[in-house]
Design a protein around this nucleic acid. Structure first.
Lengths: 134, 134
DNA sequence: GTAGCTGCAAACTCTTTGCAACTCT
DNA sequence: AGAGTTGCAAAGAGTTTGCAGCTAC
């Protein structure tokens, strides 16, 4: 049982074939797959997976903090395993997503929230851009 | 004809009663109304306004850059007149939206995009927080 | 006069859910 | 054994769209 499956077990989740397939897809993903993407890939591992189960499982994993749901300006959700904290730059031409991290921004975020009288709980920072020709 | 109506005219839009009602609602809004909000308020000015027209008009105004569409993590859109550039902090308890602006972040954003090989076209920065008890 | 705008209702997309059957523990 | 999980199909929420009639210019 790998690390993620352990976290699921600890949360009291039963490890079904469908869930294992979905987790495998997410663990192996180098991109930020949509629900439909996860569904298509999971079906190749376990043909019995249904789209309803993908939705249910991803919501559950999101609540547990095992995955992170993103809603880039596309009208649907994308998911990734919750690893290190980072933000995203979306390539407006290809839809490709690049990750980045910046300590300075983290500090400023905290300060802004505090100055406005708020405790920062969550944050969404997304850049949208076009590849520079060199 | 006020400033916003002029911009619409310049863009070739016909100024109908429905559009004027919608624009009046947006101009007068101190919050960030949802489509439903705009619809309800516009109906009080011009009872003939339909929700379809509100959707169509807001999309149009968004394309023209006259309004800005936001999708805070709520599952629907909110709009505001496109005035000065700013970001938003959403109060997780009340749903209230506070605006802020920060030059440092603007600079860092540009730098991050450039360093990743991108021209920054758009950006979404939203903080979600809980009011601090003092 | 006519291109553009409108209301209506139907259609669409993404997501959620009720239910009866099934399965992990 | 039993609580949790599943697939299916139907329902939901928000949004878009085809169409015939209307209206600003």
């Amino acid at each position: 049982m790998n690390n993620i499956e352990k976290r699921c077990a600890d949360a009291g989740l039963k490890m079904t074939g469908q869930r294992r397939a979905i987790l495998d897809v997410l663990s192996g993903a180098k991109d930020h797959p949509s629900v439909e993407d996860v569904y298509e890939r999971a079906k190749k591992i376990d043909a019995s997976v249904s789209i309803a189960t993908v939705y249910r499982t991803l919501s559950l994993l999101d609540e547990l903090g095992i995955v992170v749901r993103h809603e880039f300006q596309e009208g649907y959700s994308r998911y990734e395993i919750n690893s290190s904290h980072h933000h995203h730059l979306v390539d407006l031409e290809s839809g490709k997503v690049v990750e980045f991290q910046n300590d300075e921004i983290e500090k400023i975020k905290q300060k802004i929230a505090k100055d406005l009288g708020y405790e920062l709980v969550e944050c969404r920072l997304e850049l949208y851009g076009r590849k520079l020709k060199k």
